[in-house]
Design a binder for these strands. Sequence first.
DNA 1: AATTGGCCCAACCGCCAACAA
DNA 2: ATTGTTGGCGGTTGGGCCAAT
Length: 264
Amino acid sequence: MGRSPCCEKAHTNKGAWTKEEDDRLIAHIRAHGEGCWRSLPKAAGLLRCGKSCRLRWINYLRPDLKRGNFTEEEDELIIKLHSLLGNKWSLIAGRLPGRTDNEIKNYWNTHIRRKLMSRGIDPATHRAINEPNNVPNVKTISFSSVPTSEETKLNIIECKEERICTMNVKEERCPDLNLELRISPPCESSSAGQFLKRRSLCFSCSLGLMNSKDCSCSYSFSSNCSSSSASSSSNSTNGDIGGGNSDFLGLKSGLLEFRSLEMK
DNA sequence: AATTGGCCCAACCGCCAACAA
DNA sequence: ATTGTTGGCGGTTGGGCCAAT
């Protein structure tokens, strides 16, 4: 049996939203809050699919959206995040207050791709375009629950949703970016867990994806993790991209060296 | 002035994971 | 354990705009 449609398509409007529809949606969400998207159109008196309402709100009507051109700083942040995360637009958008995944995706496809191409960089791989692909001695980041002592240079605990993963850097010789990220199931072993606590960074905290106090990871990142993640979080709510005290991804200090993370 | 082609971006589509029954 | 529902995500589309011809 196939999936049931998300809404009754025969009686829904499609295409561009009218001012009146926008007003109805805004008024309803102000009165009742976000959520229950399926029942929202009927409750709000809209002839729209719930998904359409959600998209309209998230991408266009939300009061905290930042409209207007992307700054040079935002450009660079998007490029760095994309090099780490790939096309995970929602994750990237999470680090750019006031920007939506859709907006960033569009901006990437229309502006940044071209910008990187003009720099001679392949936007898909973040490698030099004329560089040979079959470069030997690959340095990769892999996510695995039990790192080998030889492999592990850097472990990052993914603690979002209480999952713990590790990112291991296998260092080899050739300094070239390999941006493939692999994520493994949570590690269970307590001994391995202790090992990781000692050797790992919190992925969400260090990326600033989660405030350290909200994060379920028990890892204490000494002075770096907790302080940087806390300031990162508070700064991000103020729209401070890699600015203020956070210096997310080392934008200001240049601390983040991709080649030290993953190379191919 | 009319046409064409490229660009931009809002919106749609299909898939997937999480969750509830 | 299975099935249906829902919300969320990334890829794609299509219409409006604008500059070039």
